[in-house]
Structures are given as C-alpha cells and as structure tokens.
Nucleic acid binder design. Structure first.
Length: 433
RNA sequence: GCCGUCGUAGCUCAGUGGUAGAGCACUCGGCUGUUAACCGAGCGGUCGCCGGUUCGAAUCCGGUCGACGGCGCCA
C-alpha cells in the first residue's frame, strides 16, 4: 500500500503500526498538560489519539497547536505506535502538525439539550452518532434500488408539484403556482398507476410531504418514500414483495454497516441476524380478536391507535402483516375483497416501537366504485378525471405499496425519534436549519 | 387539533417574595501520559416577551411567544 493520506480506521486496524502516516481531519477533543498535547483526531472513518510533544515541533508551532480549539482542521504527520495508554490501543506520535483551518468556539459541548442539537443540526452532523446513522441511511437507499432493479423494476419519477390529493384525510402543503393553489405531493402512486400500463413494473425513492401537525416520534412533514407499483400482482404477491424488500435492507445493512449499527444499538445486530421470512400474516379481524384476548377494549371498525399497535407488535418476534382492513378506514383506491366487499385487499406491515413500516394494497380498477368511494371521502371526482382515465382504457389488476424510509431506519437503529433518521428533519415546529 | 412540561451566563442547570448562583466552555497562569485531564485566577446575565399585584418580583397572578414530550391522524 502506497498512498499519501491514510484513514484513521486503518491506523486503528493495525495496518501502519511502527510506520509513518499522514492523517487529516478535525480535532475531536484536546487536552494539554504543558509540554505535551493530546489530540483526538477525527476523520470520516474514526477517531485516533495524536500526541504532540514540545520537543518534536518548532516552538511557535507547538504553541499554535496548543491553542487550537475543538473542530479545528489539521494535517498530522507522525509515527503510529501501539500503546495501552491510548484510548483504542494505538496512537500517532506527531512529527509535524499543519493547521488547515482553526475553529471558532464550537457551540456543542458535552451537555446539550434536544433543542440545542436541533438548532445546531448543521454542526451536530459531525457527531459519531449522526455519522453512523447517516451511513446506515445511505446503505438503506442503495439496498432499495438494488432490490427493485434486481427484480426488473424500472425507476419512474412523478411530479412533486401536483393539483390533487392522494391519501384521504391527509393534509396538503399549498404552493403558490403563479397565483393558483397547487400542492406538494403526498405520494407518487397515482402517477405511477398511469405509467405502469406503459413502462411496466416501476418503483421510486422520492420525498413526500404531509401537512399534518403530528407531534409524534414517528412523523415528519417531509419524508422519503419508497414506492412500488407492479402489474398483475395479487395481495399475497404484494406481501412477498414487501417482505423481500425489508429482508434485503436488513441484510445489506448488516453486511455494510455492522459496526455503525453496533455503535448505535448493540442488541439490534442479533435481532436483525435472526430475522428471516416469512413474517406472520394476520387479518384485521384476527388482530381484533388477539387484542381482545389480551384484555384490550377494541371496537370492530376502528383503526388501531398507538396502544393497539404496541400490543399487537409485542405479540410477535418479527414484523407482522395485518391484512383485510374494513374499507372505511382505508384509502379510496384500494380494491375490495370479492369474498367480503366490506374489506379491502391490502395490508400494513407493523414493527415494534415504530408502528407502520409499509402500507400497500391491490388497486381498485372499477371506475364506478372509485367514484363512489371518492364521494364518500368528500372529494370531487371531477378532480380525478385523468386518474379515472387510467381505468377506462384497458386497465389490468395491479398493486403497490409505500415504505417510509425514515421509519425503516428508525426501526433498524432503534431510534427514539424519527428526526434522527434524516439529516435535516422537518417537523410541525421546525424547518431550520 | 387536544393534554402536559419547560424558557435564568455560550451550554447544562440550581435558585419559589428581600443585592443573580454553580459546573462546563472561553481567556490567563501551572504541569511531558492525558482519557469529559487536573489545579489556581479571570471573563460572562434586560432571569423569553407584555402587563398586573407588592415598599420590593427570576420567584405570585393574567396574557403572549417559543421549544420539548404524549395523544389523534398517517408512511
């Protein structure tokens, strides 16, 4: 190996012990004891201790290094030694330190409130915790592309600016479009249903926007949505497509980010390692019965709240599919079950702590049924003419789902709050920085 | 939308009617093996904002703004 700059991780992996290295990065912490300075040098791969002795540097340079504040950027040349006194068993004895850019007083110290970290999110991204999470996030995005493309699905983009709603009840962010009111998209789905009859099976990863004042640990107003639409799929095939994606994501994160995952959540690794299909599948009615058996007061026809979700997911050691919900509590576009027209062919995939990870359904293709359901939801069907057209010209059975990517990350990392699953979270009370 | 908690130094907090406090950070001094170093000194405030009660309000009362937490709704 012969290169100019080494990674901190390589030093900690014993690749350069006894040798000279060149490192560059940021001062994570610094301690000076007079004629010697201890620096913890951070780069994107890790943190290593650097010792700077007064004898080794020119006097002026030593005084400069001594006065550097946390987060100053530097280049270090020195020798790697194995030393039990160093935090990770290895340290770099500096021969030369070049100051790239001294830092002002860093606003984030050891004690910090949630609010302070959110105000300084642009600086908090340098933390080990955020670095680990964002690495896992990157892997999750890659895994989703990989999964769908390996199955022959093509990537299709819908507009972000749109004139119509999609999810009944969900509120839209209005946008002033040259004096007309349009909205930020809530979902890719309706446009996907137009594209599917030409392109075939498609998927996307795109932001979705929900103007709901949901002050919960599971909601963002702007979140990243992985959505898929497949031709000829029935509900069972759609379940397999959802299960396959979740399993593939978990596998990839274990492969590529095991260390990052362990840094955040030690128990997560074992849970994910043991995760395999098939996930349990129960109907809405069976879920109601289970909850009643557990002593909960649930009324048939009600959607599950947080207490019901918690109870239900606690009964299984894997994510659980709940199928065949009553049509009244689900979106207008879901197809009714021919065997029981009060139910829809669709499902939610639920996991502990997070709740719903995926919501999917077979799509209704009958124009009259769609119009009737739209009216029930208080929508004006004339706003949906182009969508209804997709059913008027040789529609075929099809199905799809949406997966909340931040919720997947929250689940994988066992995060207390979904806002840590995204670099700059947007919540009802926060849109800065 | 509903319920709750909290706003005091750059940060984290104490102070519940009588002169505004601590730890950390920062500055200066000391120290060649520190691990959130340590020791000494210094700097640092319109107690969120508006109004009221009182001889006197960070403290009591009313309002307001903001943040956080929980519920509902959803992915």
């Amino acid at each position: 190996m012969n290169k100019d700059w080494m990674d901190v991780k390589e030093v900690l992996d014993d690749k350069y012990t006894g040798k000279k290295v060149n490192l560059r990065g940021w001062i994570h912490r610094t301690r000076n004891i007079g004629n010697m300075v201890f620096l913890n040098l951070r780069d994107p791969t890790g943190i290593v201790q650097v010792t700077v002795a007064k004898d080794e540097l020119e006097e002026d340079r030593f005084e400069e290094v001594k006065s550097l504040l946390i987060e100053s950027s530097i280049k270090v040349t020195g020798q790697v030694v194995s030393d039990q006194r160093a935090p990770d068993g290895f340290e770099v004895r500096a021969r030369d330190v070049k100051i790239v850019h001294p830092a002002n007083v860093f606003p984030i110290q050891e004690d910090h409130s949630v609010e302070h970290l959110l105000e300084n999110r642009h600086l908090w991204l340098r933390s080990t915790r955020m670095r680990n999470i964002l690495s896992i996030r990157s892997t999750v995005f890659g895994a989703i592309h990989e999964f769908f493309r390996s199955k022959g699905y093509k990537e299709f983009q819908s507009p972000i600016i749109t004139p119509l709603a999609c999810e009944g009840g969900a509120t839209l962010f209005p946008v002033d479009y040259f004096d007309e009111e349009v909205y930020l998209t809530q979902s890719w789905q309706l446009y996907a249903e137009a594209a599917i009859f030409g392109l075939g099976n498609i998927y996307t990863i795109a932001p979705s926007f929900r103007a709901e004042k949901s002050k919960t640990p599971r909601h963002l107003t702007e979140f990243w949505h992985a959505e898929v639409e497949g031709l000829w799929l029935d509900n069972d095939e759609l379940i397999e497509l959802g299960e396959g994606l979740v399993l593939h994501i978990a596998k990839k994160v274990l492969e590529d980010d095991r260390q990052e995952l362990e840094n955040i959540y030690k128990d997560g690794v074992e849970y994910l390692e043991n995760l395999e299909g098939p996930f349990p599948r129960i109907t809405y009615e069976e879920a109601i019965d289970l909850l009643k058996k557990e002593g909960m007061e649930v009324i048939y026809g009600d959607d599950f709240g947080v207490p019901e979700e918690k109870k239900l997911t606690s009964l299984f050691d894997k994510p659980v599919f709940v199928t065949h919900y009553p049509k009244e509590i689900k979106a207008f576009y879901m197809k009714r079950d021919e065997n029981d027209p009060t139910k829809v062919l669709g499902y939610d995939l639920m996991v502990p702590h997070v709740g719903e990870l995926i919501g999917g359904s077979v799509r209704e293709t009958d124009v009259d049924s769609l119009i009737a359901r739209l009216k029930e939801e208080g929508e004006d069907p004339s706003n949906y003419e182009w969508f209804l057209d997709t059913r008027r010209y040789g529609s075929v059975p099809h199905a799809g789902y949406g997966l909340g990517i931040e919720r997947v990350i929250m689940w994988l990392c066992n995060l207390d709050h979904i806002r840590d699953a995204i670099p700059f979270p947007r919540t009802p009370n926060r849109y800065r920085p």
